[in-house]
Each structure stands twice: as C-alpha cells, then as structure tokens.
C-alpha cells in the first residue's frame, strides 16, 4: 500500500519544487521520500523510477500534444531518433533512472522499520 503513496509523494513534491529548482531536484526529492518511506531497496528503486519516469513522461507528452509535436519532432531529428514519442520516451527514461537510483539510495539508508 505504501508504494502508490511514495510514488504520488515524489511526483507531487517534485512538481511543486520543480518550478523553481534545477532539473536534479527530482533526485533529491526521490532520495528524501525514499529515505522516509523505507521500502525494501528494490521497491524503493521501482518507486523512484516509476515516479520520476511517469512525471517526466506525462509532462513531456502533455507539452508535446499541445505543441502538435513540432519541437519534439525536431529534437528527435537532432538526436537521430525516429519521432517525437521516442524523444519523450528517452526524456522519461533519463528522469526515471535518476529518480530510481536516488530513491534506492534513500531506501538503503532508511532507518525506518519495514
């Protein structure tokens, strides 16, 4: 049951602080939430991965749809990727990896009882 709460917490906090902080604030948020949540390390990673990945994917896809794929299409071409969705996917995976690793570290360092 704590998993969805952790994921939602990471997304909400990252979203709120994200407007005024640099991109790597997602790592800090995922780490701290992971630390407080005290999941098993594997689950901690999964929570951080899914949270930041989903957050970045949704935000990217939302912006891409509103933009009618103009920017992401060009960025995809710049990085020799097949299309705007792939580019959104790459964005999400980078965010997910950083979030996952940070939350994993948090879980490992957590003193909270499981």
């Amino acid at each position: 049951m704590r998993m969805p709460v952790t994921i939602i917490a990471i997304i909400v906090i990252a979203f709120i602080v994200g407007t005024i902080t640099p991109w790597w604030s997602v790592a800090v948020v995922a780490f701290l939430v992971g630390l407080l949540a005290g999941h098993k390390p594997g689950l901690g990673f999964l929570a951080g991965f899914l949270a930041v990945g989903l957050y970045w994917l949704c935000l990217a896809l939302y912006r891409d749809a509103a933009n009618e794929h103009i920017l992401a299409g060009r960025m995809a071409a710049l990085f020799h990727l097949p299309g705007s969705y792939t580019f959104a996917g790459v964005t999400a995976i980078i965010g997910a990896l950083v979030g996952g690793l940070a939350a994993w570290a948090g879980s490992l360092l957590s003193t909270r009882k499981r």
């Binding site: 640099p22 991109w23 891409d64 992401a72």
Partner: peptide, 20 residues
C-alpha cells in the same frame, strides 16, 4: 548537457510552444 536539456519543466520541452 542532457539533464537540463531534457528536463520537461525548464529544458527543451519548455520551448514546445502550445499551438494554441
């Protein structure tokens, strides 16, 4: 630098100007 570039809040995605 991929982090700041791909950041959907401030990165290149912020330049995806909504068509409307």
């Amino acid at each position: 630098a991929l982090g700041p570039l791909l950041d959907p809040v401030h990165g290149c995605w912020a330049n995806a100007e909504p068509a409307s």
